[in-house]
Simulated scan of single mutants.
Amino acid sequence: MKIAIVHDNLVCKGGAEQVALSFHNAFPDAPVFTLAYDSKNTYPEFKDCNVKTSWFGRFIKSEKNLKRYYFPFGIMAMQQLDVSGYDIVLQSTTHCAKYIKTDPNALIITYCHNPFRLVWSTESYEKVVKAGAIKKILYKKVIDMLRNIDKTFANKTTWFITNSKEVVPRIQNAYHPKNEITVINPSVKCENFYVADAIGDYFLVVSRFESYKKIDLVVEAFNDMPEKKLVIVGKGSRENEVKLSAGPNITFLNGLNVQDLAKVYANCKAFIFPQLEDYGITPLEANASGRPVIAYGKGGILETMLPYKDDAMKATAIFFDEQTKDALKEAVGIFETLTFDPAFIRAHAESFDEGSFVNKIRSFVMNKYISGDVVKPNNVEEPKPVIVVA
C-alpha cells in the first residue's frame, strides 16, 4: 500500500497546515505534495517531511506572490503535479490540492476544510464585492471558470472528511458527493502549551491579517478601551492597514517560535476570536494554555467551546452575538467580572489533543482501503487538464 499526502500550499502557518502535519504523523513515510513550499514561513516540522512541490513552487515561495500568480499559473501547475503510482491519496484542501494527477483507481480521501472560498463564498472577498463594474465582469468570468475546474476535480473524491458540522452543508451544496461526509474535528498539540502560575495584563489575538478574520474590529474596540492592553500575533495582507489604525495600547508581534508563542498564550488574560470560522484551532490553543476565549458565537467555535451561562468555573469561553466593536466591548466587560478555572479549561482542550485526531484519520483511511472503496463515487474518468486563460 502506497499513500501520498497532498496539501494546497505550505507558505504560512495556519490550522490547515497543522492538519497536514497531523496527516504526516499518521503516515510518516508518505510524501507531501504541494503547490509551493516556504520553509521559513510555515511550520518548521515540515523540514522532516519529504515535501514535493509543483514547478510553480520552484519559482514562487512567498504567500504574497502565490496569491498574485495563482491564477492562471498555480492552477495549471497543480493540474500537472503527478501523484500517480499511489494507492491512497489523502488531500488537505480548501482549493487546489484536489487538482493533481492520480491513478484512475486510487482511493482519494479529501479533508475539505471548506469549499474554495473565492468561488463558493465570493461575497466574503472584499476586493470582489467592492470592485467596479468592469472588474466585476472580469472577476465573474474568472470565478465561473474556477468553479467549473473545482467541481470537476472534486468529483474524483471517493470520501469527504471535514472539520466541523458547519462545513458539511457547504460541501454538499458545492460538490454533491454521493457518499456520506464524515466530520473529524482537527486537533490541538497540547504538549506545546502550558498553564502559567500567573497571568499578564493583556488580551490576545493570534491570526492572519485578512478581512474575514476581523482583526480591525478588535483594534477598533481596544482603541475605545485605551486602559486595556492588546497583543496581536500574526501577519498578512492587511497588516500595514491594521497597524496604522491601532492605538498605543496595542502591540504587534510575529515570527514567534513555539516556546515564545506558548508563553504569550499562557500569560494572556483571555484570547479574542472575532471571526466566523469553519472550525478554529487557535481558541483550543488558548484553552490548552488554561486561558478562556472571548469569541463571536457562531460557526465551528460552537463545536469546541463550552460557553459561559451561569458558572464561569465550568466554561471555556464567553460568546458575543454580533460582529461589532460594541458587542465585543460588552463581552470584555463581562469577562472582567468573572473567574475561570484554568485547570478545567486545560482538561477540556486535552479532549481535542492531536493523538486522538491522528488515530481517527489513520483508522478512517485504513478502513476505507481495506473495505475496497477504491471506485470513484461518480464513476468519472480522470479529468483532462483545464487550460485557464485570463
Score class of each variant (00 low, 15 high):
residue 117 R to W: 10
residue 161 I to R: 04
residue 88 I to M: 06
residue 126 E to Q: 15
residue 337 T to E: 15
residue 108 I to E: 00
residue 52 K to E: 15
residue 188 V to T: 10
residue 339 T to W: 00
residue 266 A to C: 09
residue 40 K to F: 09
residue 197 D to S: 14
residue 103 D to C: 00
residue 169 P to K: 02
residue 80 Q to M: 14
residue 328 L to E: 03
residue 348 H to E: 08
residue 146 L to M: 14
residue 251 T to A: 14
residue 301 I to R: 06
residue 309 K to I: 15
residue 18 Q to K: 15
residue 121 S to R: 14
residue 307 P to H: 12
residue 293 V to W: 05
residue 91 Q to N: 11
residue 99 Y to T: 12
residue 68 R to D: 07
residue 54 S to N: 07
residue 329 K to Q: 14
residue 152 T to R: 00
residue 68 R to F: 10
residue 237 S to G: 02
residue 265 Y to C: 07
residue 214 K to Y: 05
residue 3 I to G: 03
residue 121 S to Y: 10
residue 235 K to Y: 13
residue 121 S to W: 05
residue 367 N to D: 14
residue 227 E to P: 10
residue 163 N to M: 02
residue 31 P to M: 04
residue 190 C to A: 11
residue 268 C to P: 05
residue 59 F to I: 11
residue 51 V to N: 01
residue 237 S to R: 14
residue 298 K to T: 09
residue 11 V to I: 13
residue 294 I to G: 04
residue 104 P to G: 04
residue 137 I to F: 13
residue 255 G to S: 07
residue 42 T to H: 05
residue 389 V to T: 12
residue 338 L to D: 08
residue 206 V to Y: 04
residue 17 E to M: 11
residue 156 K to C: 05
residue 54 S to K: 02
residue 322 E to C: 09
residue 254 N to C: 13
residue 378 N to V: 10
residue 311 D to V: 06
residue 311 D to Y: 06
residue 84 S to H: 13
residue 158 T to D: 06
residue 215 I to H: 00
residue 123 E to F: 14
residue 65 N to M: 07
residue 105 N to A: 10
residue 171 I to W: 01
residue 161 I to C: 05
residue 291 R to L: 03
residue 294 I to P: 05
residue 83 V to L: 00
residue 390 A to W: 01
residue 279 Y to H: 14
residue 86 Y to Q: 01
residue 221 A to N: 03
residue 48 D to H: 13
residue 246 A to T: 15
residue 201 D to I: 13
residue 234 G to H: 00
residue 66 L to Y: 07
residue 43 Y to L: 07
residue 372 G to K: 05
residue 267 N to M: 06
residue 348 H to A: 04
residue 127 K to V: 14
residue 126 E to R: 15
residue 354 E to M: 02
residue 6 V to Y: 01
residue 38 D to G: 13
residue 51 V to C: 04
residue 309 K to N: 15
residue 197 D to N: 15
residue 269 K to L: 08
residue 239 E to A: 09
residue 186 P to K: 07
residue 188 V to R: 00
residue 13 K to L: 01
residue 193 F to L: 00
residue 112 C to H: 02
residue 56 F to D: 06
residue 40 K to C: 03
residue 160 F to H: 08
residue 279 Y to Q: 11
residue 47 K to G: 11
residue 268 C to Y: 05
residue 252 F to L: 05
residue 106 A to P: 02
residue 288 A to I: 08
residue 365 V to G: 01
residue 208 R to E: 07
residue 193 F to R: 12
residue 106 A to N: 01
residue 191 E to G: 14
residue 177 P to N: 11
residue 350 E to F: 11
residue 335 F to H: 11
residue 31 P to G: 08
residue 157 T to A: 00
residue 220 E to Y: 03
residue 140 K to A: 15
residue 129 V to N: 03
residue 357 F to I: 08
residue 289 S to R: 05
residue 41 N to I: 09
residue 233 V to E: 06
residue 129 V to W: 04
residue 238 R to F: 09
residue 107 L to V: 03
residue 98 K to H: 12
residue 155 N to T: 13
residue 58 R to C: 13
residue 314 K to E: 09
residue 209 F to C: 01
residue 318 I to D: 01
residue 114 N to H: 12
residue 55 W to Q: 11
residue 272 I to N: 00
residue 310 D to W: 03
residue 1 M to S: 14
residue 296 Y to S: 08
residue 361 I to Q: 02
